[in-house]
Write a protein that binds this DNA or RNA. Structure first.
Lengths: 353, 353
DNA sequence: TTGTACGCGTTATCAA
DNA sequence: TTGATAACGCGTACAA
């Protein structure tokens, strides 16, 4: 009996969701009527409305987003491209954006560039071919011609986060310049004058803004800037370790360090620890972006901070406006203010230095 | 002259990507031929192949993933559902998964449940209606009937991360039971006997596994378990603050605390700090999951750890196999070993306690 | 080897 | 108010 093969090679596909056609058939109405009920068009008789709704309930019908995209050109999907989802700051940003966008019925397509242009380009292309309705991104560079050309080509509403590409995109920018000024004011008031700043390459806004703030502050004080105290090599934790180690090895090191990058604190703290120095007695420290580590380090680390999740939400709202075609056609530039929070890591400058 | 209106209400849509039809037309071949070239079917003459490729290059043609999904049923998209992208552990996991999946041409649809069942259900439904090819998820509960029914209904290859729903899904589990044993062995060797464990509700695997490990260890030692030392109220940082504060207020508090949740360290450290206690002199501490904070706290915090990014990669590979229909049909259960790393936060138990 | 035609699930248009 | 039908872009079976 075993060769009867009672299962005639069942296609073993998923039970294929119900289609609008089946709904119409079960409801005994035409396709178009079912569609009208689903999309809440006004001109449907109460009777047919009820029949269709019953059929929908019975079949568990859910519209197929893919087919809707096919028809409308929209996908109710938004791409979000970040450097590294592992950074609490970026994760908080994604979280905020996700929160408001999902409440509006959008789903997020996530891309992590890990600093790779290739990954960035790939993500944007595959997102575009999935017909995303909007894009939020933190590019690894602002001067990448290929990326810009690509963006022009796909022509999708886009919000830049902490990046500025003039005359081109809406941008949501953290007031890093202000943050640096706030940090410097406090450090100056504590007597510090030799203050190093560690940040990344100036082909992105955050580095530029911080440098601008740094130079402007010294200029306002009528003091020359010691260029050796400015490092624009890295935003990473590993980089911060290297840079901090190097600086601390100088014969006359700075008395304070400002970290101009959201992932740098761990590396810098490690370097200071490795050298056996005390904070703030031997060196004062200010970080960019608040974190558990900053709050709970010993001593707690002074920070320039802002609300990441809130920024993510704001970015999402900006994008929603753009997608609806609301608001001015001009690219907008929203600046998010920073708060400087003095904690134990910024102390009085030792008198002998 | 102003009423001439030279712009006749331009549709102002995106420049509408080139279609395969345009490629065929420009190449002077039929639609099918263009398709065959694109999909590398063998039977195409060299001449036509060249013509089509030229046309593709000239038009910058890229296949429309939505239309492909429509046709194939596949979307080359994978859903990933986590509780909170802000947790470094979960973010690391997402990062690893994203890395291998994007290398395989898949794009990630990200959902954050924030512990809300509604968000979970919404995400799974909208992802399904986007025809995701696979799903990786960390559900907020394992005993949620609605979620299970939904999963059955959509019937998509699924990998559970750190969750186990017997007879149902592939699961990738961290060996928390082992981790707790490793922690207890070390604490015992330091003389601790009154050891509290703080973890979440036991309707998810990590809590259950940790409790199992805890009880098994005491049983193996022939010691009774003091039930008061077991708390299964929360996985969160805020919760850890509350629980730790409560415990430390006891007349005879435990001499060590094991944190059974990846986000709990910050809250617990805050509570200990707020009480003015020293680690490890007054209380020893072991955390779950490594982090910058654990490494750089003072003293550094002992942890049970594992490689999040690697786990994410493994999950992605498991899913890829499932999506290809490879491997056994049985649900698989992969256990990822943990490592116990003793750092300064676990010290010798004071003799008078 | 190449070309044609169909259908995937929707929505919108048009005629009834 | 309702029903039939075209179209979105693609891949493929089938015919040539």
């Amino acid at each position: 009996m075993k060769s009867l093969s009672p299962t005639p090679k069942a296609p073993r596909k998923q039970p294929s969701r119900a289609t609008i056609r089946e709904v119409a058939a079960l409801g005994g109405v035409a396709l178009g009527t079912a569609s009208r009920v689903i999309n809440k068009h006004p001109n449907v008789s109460a009777e047919n409305m009820a029949k269709v709704q019953a059929a929908i309930a019975k079949l568990g019908y859910k519209p197929d987003t893919v087919a809707q995209s096919m028809r409308n050109g929209e996908s109710r999907t938004v791409g979000i491209l970040v450097r590294n989802i592992t950074s609490p700051v970026l994760a908080g940003f994604v979280r905020g954006a996700q929160e408001v966008l999902s409440d509006q019925g959008y789903t997020l397509l996530l891309g992590c560039s890990e600093e790779s242009r290739e990954r960035e380009v790939n993500f944007i292309m595959s997102a575009a071919s999935r017909r995303i309705d909007g894009l939020i991104m933190i590019t690894s560079a602002e001067d990448d011609a290929e990326l810009l050309a690509l963006r022009k080509e796909i022509n999708i509403p886009t919000i830049l986060f902490d990046r500025e590409i003039p005359e081109s995109f809406d941008a949501l920018l953290i007031a890093h310049e202000q943050g640096i000024k706030q940090s410097l004011e406090h450090l100056f008031s504590l007597g510090h004058r030799r203050i190093a700043i560690l940040t990344g390459k100036d082909n992105v806004y955050p580095a530029r803004a911080r440098l601008r703030g740094y130079r402007a502050f010294f200029e306002a004080q009528g003091l020359p800037v010691d260029e050796r105290l400015i490092s624009t090599n890295t935003f990473t934790s590993e980089g911060a370790f290297v840079e901090t180690s190097a600086i601390l090895g100088w014969t006359q090191p700075p008395t304070a360090i400002i970290l101009g990058g959201i992932s740098m604190l761990a590396g810098s703290l490690s370097a200071i620890k490795a050298r056996g120095l005390r904070i703030p007695e031997d060196i004062s420290l200010v970080a960019s972006g608040d974190s558990d580590l900053a709050m709970l380090s010993t001593p707690p680390t002074s920070v320039v901070r802002w609300n990441n999740t809130e920024v993510g939400r704001t970015g999402a709202f900006l994008l929603l406006e753009r997608m609806k075609g609301e608001g001015s056609l001009e690219p907008r530039r929203i600046i998010v203010p920073t708060e400087y929070l003095a904690r134990g890591s910024s102390g009085r400058c030792p008198p002998d230095r």
